[in-house]
Design a protein around this nucleic acid. Structure first.
Lengths: 203, 203
DNA sequence: TGACTTTTATACGGTATCGTATAGAAATAT
DNA sequence: ATATTTCTATACGATACCGTATAAAAGTCA
């Protein structure tokens, strides 16, 4: 077995790491949005030349969809993992919302918010695929939250007189509202404070 | 007193009505967003030539801010008026959210959502004035909602064990979430159904 | 070592968009 | 009626952006 960790293909090897440059592309899109980011701007932010970028990821829309997909998966995992394993529904909600607030904000300076809500939303009317990605993300997230409530916080939900679906809908709504507020220039401190206030609204 | 209703100024009169064309500009921005709408597209949607548009409202950013201001004022009035004068906080919330759902949706076809949340949000990082308009709208709306709760639904709030500020924050959050969901392609019927579900989350 | 393959860098043409210049059209005031 | 003022329409230059052609660079395989 001649299994190398990474079988090298013929041809000149790439000088960049896909995960790294995709993260840089995400930052660029998050900063200026999809439409306002020119392809050259993004290539510069990724440290790539324009032809390299075209060769690797295609045009701007394809790159954005790629970035969005990765972001959605990461956000889903981030949210569900922060919602799981707490000792009560209330604490789980608080943990989720506060971590989301930190995720949506920058250590210093104004928050840039959520890539899905803050930059992809206007493009839903022009690009069906983006709209479908957002709808699917929302749907999948709410199903996951509902599952977690059912499996881990059923007793708490009952105490509050709410079904798991209602809890899930409530929490996803608070996340959306946090995503919107984040892009209005709040600092991390302010956003986390807002998240704590929101988390008290469950009961 | 020679007071005419409208003193005609010298010079060639305008062929268009400001309120009408601004509404058409709003529709154009709502459809394609701020950045993706070219100045020519907008002028066509308004039935104006490009120089007329420049002359009347300035460049695209100035026009967008003008439209946003009008939209924000209308939304504020629409929301607060639908929240007032009901017989209970729960009914007021339901009335508010359902009317917002209708406001955010089209009679047929997919919803276009909220101009503030659905199209202005990405531009907050580039244009301070837009960010400030959004922040100010949110702030003013929440203060108005809080006032209404204090004056009309204090008893209901007390019964729910929430302060007027908490109620206000809760409702504004649900509105934001509705604004986000609206732009994911839901029909009016679906969006109104969602609003009704959300309105049950207060208690 | 030499042929081949893939990435990279520079440069280019085509297109769209922006903002305005210029001239004509339509009203008022004297 | 004529002059004046303001709006409208066509056209234009400048710029930015997109996507790619072309050739050099940097590796692998025989």
């Amino acid at each position: 077995m001649t299994n190398k960790i990474q079988r090298s293909k013929p041809g000149r090897p790439r000088k960049f790491d896909e995960a790294v440059v995709l993260q840089q592309a995400m930052q660029a899109f998050l900063q200026n949005g999809f439409e306002a980011s020119s392809y050259e701007d993004i290539a510069r932010a990724m440290g790539l030349s324009k032809p390299s970028l075209y060769n690797a990821f295609g045009d701007k829309l394809a790159l954005f969809e790629r970035v969005l997909g990765g972001y959605a998966a990461a956000a889903h995992g981030h949210i569900t993992s922060n919602f799981s394993g707490e000792d009560s529904l209330e604490n789980a909600a608080q943990n989720l919302l506060c971590s989301a607030a930190e995720f949506y904000s920058s250590p210093d300076g104004p928050s840039l918010g959520c890539l899905l809500v803050g930059t992809a939303l206007p493009s839903t009317t022009q690009y069906d695929h983006i709209r479908e990605m957002l709808a699917q993300f929302t749907n999948a997230l709410e199903l996951s939250l509902e599952d977690i409530v059912t499996q881990q916080y059923a007793k708490d939900a009952k105490r509050l007189g709410k079904t798991p679906r209602e809890i899930s809908l409530h929490i996803s709504s608070l996340i959306f509202s946090l995503a919107v507020r984040a892009r209005m220039g709040l600092s991390r401190k302010q956003l986390v404070a807002c998240a704590e206030e929101l988390s008290g609204l469950l009961g």
